[in-house]
Amino acid sequence: MKSVEEIKTAIEAAVPGAGVEFVSNPSPSAQHSLRLAPDRAVEIARFLRDDPELALDFCSNVTGIDWLDKEFSEKVKVKRTVTKTIDGVEQPVEETVEETRKRVEPGYLEAVYHLYSVAKGHGPVVIRMRTGNRSDRVELPSLTPIWRGAEFQEREVFDLYGIVFKGHPDLRRLLMWDGFKDHPMRKDYVEPDDYEYEPTPHDAVLKRAQAHKAMAGK
């Protein structure tokens, strides 16, 4: 099978202007992946499926990942003018001070597809797409028209992560019920306080159960 870099070159040759990025995987599994630009993804996916050499006709696994906003704090040296009393006289003095600055890298949702070839027996080729952010730009193109096997799995990702797959023929919640709000697999999901009392006499569970009971009593 072609290496991931070779697949990247092949895609770039077949789909001009395809924004494909190599994403390295440091784990010993060495399953490196390709990040596709969402606007060309369907075209690229069709190429991956129909190219006689790659023949990735089998989309095994589709899943979502939630990457929260990352906060970096870095120390920066800044020059500042400080008023100091020198020899009894107040005068401005320039000083170099270390300052901690916080930089926030916005989070995003990611859809990951694991592709195999039944015809050739090779794989996996991992492709991934990122949304713009986690709140309002959560649309990605659906690959269900290319691989039918993604149908339920994309529905599941929509349900649990909230990625909206454009072009999906039947995008509804899969596991949660239709009236449900929020997306339970997101990292910042807060469980609703509506569970049954559990007998466990300790832990956060007990505290919440007591709080819940107190609320219910009012």
């Binding site: 995987n25 440091p26 784990s27 010993p28 599994s29 399953q31 095994s60 696994n61 694991h114 996996p124 991992v126």
Partner: peptide, 10 residues
């Protein structure tokens, strides 16, 4: 504690 990375096993 595995080192950072990802894997798909089937």
């Amino acid at each position: 504690r595995p080192k950072p990375g990802e894997a798909y096993g089937r």
